[in-house]
Write a protein that binds this DNA or RNA. Structure first.
Lengths: 245, 245
DNA sequence: TCACAACAACTGGTATGATCAGTTGATCAG
DNA sequence: CTGATCAACTGATCATACCAGTTGTTGTGA
């Protein structure tokens, strides 16, 4: 019903503005940013706020700052990390970039089976027990798609933890942050996947038995459900946006 | 022969110190950071430097800052993205975290075949031509492992671009930044993979023919070379570090 | 003419101190 | 016990210095 109101600091606003200009190629790679003092005047904020925003851009590998020299825009396609996905997926205008969405889907469908297989190989009953518990909670909430979505994410988090691979975990974190940017949309579209509790149950069973091949197959089949649903939506979106243009 | 000397700004030093403390669990999730004014005194730098460092930590999803409230340390295992891999791989002490290294290897060996398959499906002759050109350059530099390494990375960058998937690209960028942190080591250890120009040639051929299955297989076989070499090294490292402890 | 030192005019980096603004918990009236 | 008030935190913003590195120009000497 209620949602926390968004409050944005100045430096965050500056960061978001510059980030979006860079990601939309309005500021292209190699281009030099105005000096901090000029930005201060252009944006009407304090130099500290500008510098804080620049530090964030630097952390995101979107710009390169050199003491005494000009600040350059980097090639985000070559330098940026997965944490930029949310900003790439939903453009500054609010529209969804279907190409990016397809890419994310593909990454997801590639990683999920691998992770499931690794989890089956590493962890067995302890993990499977936790998964079974989650599955019970999912069945109890079978009517509430939003709740199912949360539990499904918890489920995958457990599987990833079970794989013992921190790299998978970090990649998943970035993906999850991306989902969060369009959560309401996903809740509606991907319910076919959330409701496939049977698929997750089969996966848990495969993990319990340490059968990594079965785990891989069940994971692939499960995430394909959401993948198909989204692909269907993207095709609608694509033709609609094309129709508008 | 020569390498650029590293110059570190105050805010960067503060960032690095706090980041390492968080990633090493010295500062654990949920814990509250001292206030900015206190940090200023503890670290002996001005408040601006502290704030800039905190902004970077915030961008990296390592801390949560609330206006008026205390700044909390987040659970990096749950929040951080792939861009933290370099700092996780090589600990503050300089030692390599073998568990993280294995995770990275696994991620790499999972993604490479998928990406190769996608590239074969999407792009054909144009990409294959660029790859062939790179392969010629690799053959010309066959004696220079460091040069081969650079060209191999260029090769994969082309393949990823050919796949048209920006998510793969961003993940690759993070991985590449991780490699950069231990480049000299990799040059020595992974030369078996860099020298497998024949494998990359077979992959290029599969891409030209649009044979995604063959591309997937060749990619898997190729990256397995480096994977085995590193796994071998990690086992040595593991037993040596265990011997020291 | 050609190095090259010196300098001016940028650039970002650091420092200080004040003030605004949100949070928290204690206190006190109702 | 509820809810307003207030003091004491917290981070956020601001203005103004000055330090430090880079860059291009300018003038000097060989």
């Amino acid at each position: 019903m209620f949602q926390t109101v968004e409050k944005r600091s100045l430096s965050e606003a500056v960061y978001a503005q510059l980030r979006d200009r860079i990601l939309s190629d309005e500021l292209s790679a190699g281009e030099e940013l105005p000096s901090e003092r000029v930005l201060t005047e252009l944006l009407g904020v304090n130099r500290g706020a500008v510098r804080e925003a620049l530090k964030r851009l630097q952390q995101a590998r979107l710009i390169a700052v050199r003491h005494g020299g000009a600040t350059q825009v980097l090639d985000w396609r070559r330098e940026a990390g997965l944490e930029m996905l949310p900003s790439l997926l939903v453009k500054a205008s609010g529209q969804i970039n279907t190409e990016v969405a397809r890419g994310i889907l593909s990454l997801r469908q590639s990683l999920a089976p691998t992770i499931a297989a690794a989890a089956a190989q590493q962890a067995h009953s302890a993990l499977a027990n936790r998964l079974d518990e989650l599955l019970e909670r999912m069945q109890a909430a079978a009517a509430d798609d939003a709740r199912l979505q949360v539990l499904a994410l918890d489920y995958w988090r457990e599987v990833i933890d079970g794989s013992g691979n921190i790299a998978y975990r970090l990649a998943f974190n970035s993906l999850e942050a991306t989902y969060a940017a369009i959560r309401p949309l996903l809740t509606a579209v991907m319910c076919a996947e959330f409701r496939d509790i049977a698929g997750l149950k089969a996966l848990a069973q495969a993990i319990r038995q340490g059968d990594s091949q079965a785990a891989q197959d069940h994971a692939a089949a499960h995430v394909a459900l959401g993948g198909q649903a989204i692909e269907h939506l993207l095709q609608q979106l694509g033709s609609r946006q094309k129709g508008q243009a």
